Structure formats: C-alpha cells, structure tokens
Amino acid sequence: METETPAAGRPLTGRRVAIYIVAFFAVVIGVNGIMMKLAIDTLPGTVVDSAYRASLAYNGEITAAQAQASRAWQVAAHVERNGDKASVRIEARDATDRPVSGLAVTARLARPTDRREDRPVEIAERGIGIYRGEAENVPAGLWELVIEAERGGDRVYLSKNRVVLP
C-alpha cells in the first residue's frame, strides 16, 4: 500500500496529523479562554443580590404602586445635558393640580445595560413643588431616569423613564 504525498512532496504521516490536531485544539481552547476572561471581566454583576428577599418584597411593591396610583399625582420631569453635566427638573402636582411640597426626592440616571455606569442626581426643592438637581460626567446615550420621593420615611412615589441624552 502506497502513502499519498501532498503537493509539497512530503508524506502525510501519523505524526503530522497528530501535530495538526493538537495545534487545532490548542487554538480553539486558547480563543475560548480569552473569550471567557473578557466575558467575566465585563460582567456587571447581579441585578438582585437575593432573589428570595426580592420575591418577599414584591407584595409590598404592589401595595406601594396601588397607593401611588390612588394619589393621582402628576409628576413631570425634564432632563437636559450640557457638556458633561445633566440637569434634572421635576415638578410634582397632586390630584387637585396643587404643587406637592416637602418631599425628599432622590434621582439617578441609570444605564439600562450596566449598573456600574449609574449617575446619582443631587436633588433639592427649589420652589414649591419644583425639584432640581445635577449629575456629573454624564455621556450621551440612552438612560433611565429613576425618581423616588419620600415623605416621613415612606416612599410615596417611584418612576422609571427612558431618556435619550444627545
């Protein structure tokens, strides 16, 4: 039985085939290792630290949402980016269209894909029912404006809205 020789003139031996197979798998394993390292390094982490605790708090969230809906507040927010700063203006009115004053309002600009890029917004009441604040180092792009208002230690309002900042 004759061994076929490739065009280069060298015979294809079992040793060369073994070297090709080992080299192929070394490349595949090396690329997989690099991809795993990059995926783990860029992983933003968990969204919820404890799914069990989050599920226990779910009924409380439903109750809070129903109480918020029964108040029938109208809350308008405006976000404007100037340079690397973003300014937020929030106006809160009750069901009778009177300004809602005396709230402890917190806000944050959150990236929908990565919690590590969230930016807190320092909010203060600047007029009756008008709350303003600024966030630093806010690049352009898609953000979620998360507004929370408390009165007497209880959360009375929660809102999440998508905004695009040019």
Rank of each mutant, 00 (worst) to 15 (best):
T106P: 01
M36C: 08
V31I: 12
L38M: 13
G102Y: 02
I19P: 02
E91H: 04
V75C: 00
I147D: 00
F25R: 02
A104V: 01
L43T: 14
A124V: 15
G102I: 04
K85M: 10
A8L: 13
M36P: 04
V156W: 05
A64I: 06
L38F: 11
I19T: 10
V105I: 14
L145N: 02
E2C: 08
G83I: 07
D84N: 14
P11W: 05
E150H: 10
E91C: 02
Q74L: 10
V47A: 13
V88L: 04
R162Q: 07
R162K: 07
S159Y: 02
I19D: 04
R132C: 07
R162P: 01
I90G: 05
D154T: 10
R111V: 08
A7L: 09
V48W: 09
A86S: 01
V27I: 10
L103E: 01
P44G: 03
R126E: 11
V79F: 04
I128Q: 14
E136I: 10
G45F: 00
P139C: 05
M35G: 03
I19F: 06
R98E: 13
E4V: 15
R16A: 09
L12P: 03
D41F: 00
L142I: 12
T106Q: 08
D41K: 08
L142G: 07
D154M: 08
I128K: 12
E2Y: 10
A124W: 06
I130R: 09
V156A: 06
G33D: 03
A86F: 03
V105P: 03
E80R: 09
A72C: 11
L43E: 14
A135S: 08
L165E: 09
V17L: 15
R10N: 15
I21Q: 07
T63L: 15
P6Q: 13
R162M: 07
M1Q: 12
G129L: 01
A76L: 10
R162L: 10
R116I: 10
L38E: 13
R126G: 08
Y58D: 14
